[in-house]
Design a protein around this nucleic acid. Sequence first.
DNA 1: CCTTAGCTTGACGTTAACGTCAACGTCAAC
DNA 2: GTTGACGTTGACGTTAACGTCAAGCTAAGG
Lengths: 129, 129
Amino acid sequence: MKQQIFSITDLAREFDVTTRTIRFYEDQGLIEPERDGQRRLYRRRDRVRLMLILRGKRIGLSLQEIRELFDLYDAARDDAPQLQEFVRILARKEQQLQEQMEDIRVVLGEIGQLRAQCEKTLDKRLPDA
Amino acid sequence: MKQQIFSITDLAREFDVTTRTIRFYEDQGLIEPERDGQRRLYRRRDRVRLMLILRGKRIGLSLQEIRELFDLYDAARDDAPQLQEFVRILARKEQQLQEQMEDIRVVLGEIGQLRAQCEKTLDKRLPDA
DNA sequence: CCTTAGCTTGACGTTAACGTCAACGTCAAC
DNA sequence: GTTGACGTTGACGTTAACGTCAAGCTAAGG
């Protein structure tokens, strides 16, 4: 078994965020670590949550959107209407992400062209290379 | 030939942003429309710029990053060192975008799984559907 | 002439996502 | 006992990207 309990600085170091950030996520209701007195204790579940938060941010979700997804995912376990709502939200987000990927694909294409152009220009100017 | 000149509200409507937003981009040095007296006149070139800005935003660039790219692209025309810097920046951005696409791919996979799971649950509960 | 539509500048407000700082608790080591 | 590492809670500051007035210009229509 891997390590089960982490301190706040453990997680901060591992994911390269500040402790302030992690506490802020807690204020926003995104993580709820246990306590030993005052001190926060993070388990694997909390660590996974943090990973999900950070990945969510990387794909352009706001903290509020991330929390809504967490909430829905929790609530959806035993409530059919909630489940259907969840599915709808997922479909919408999937659509957005597809569009986002298309944008990225386009930009990558342009970057490729620009690079080729740049390198051609550089070759002309430095024919000795 | 298509229309050559646009008012600020033309562009605002077409791209679904406010005029305030467009003026803000001008303050930030991202667009420089001509003037007829006070009034701003936008040409096709400005329209393209606005498109690029909005697409940049969609892939997660800040306005500052977008301006840097514009500036570099302009400056790179006749300065070899600038060109090389430009190529480096493009390479870095390309790397980031690849990672971002990978994140999105992962999330899309998870969304698919969640949906399947949700629908399975719904089927069990509503076997008449 | 007056109004209305559309545009202008400027100033201040707002939200998200933290950073920064102060003041304090706590536990092991010296 | 005090020092230092680590942690805590507030409270206030900051940046980006606009929103929201306020106050005024200007050309066209009635």
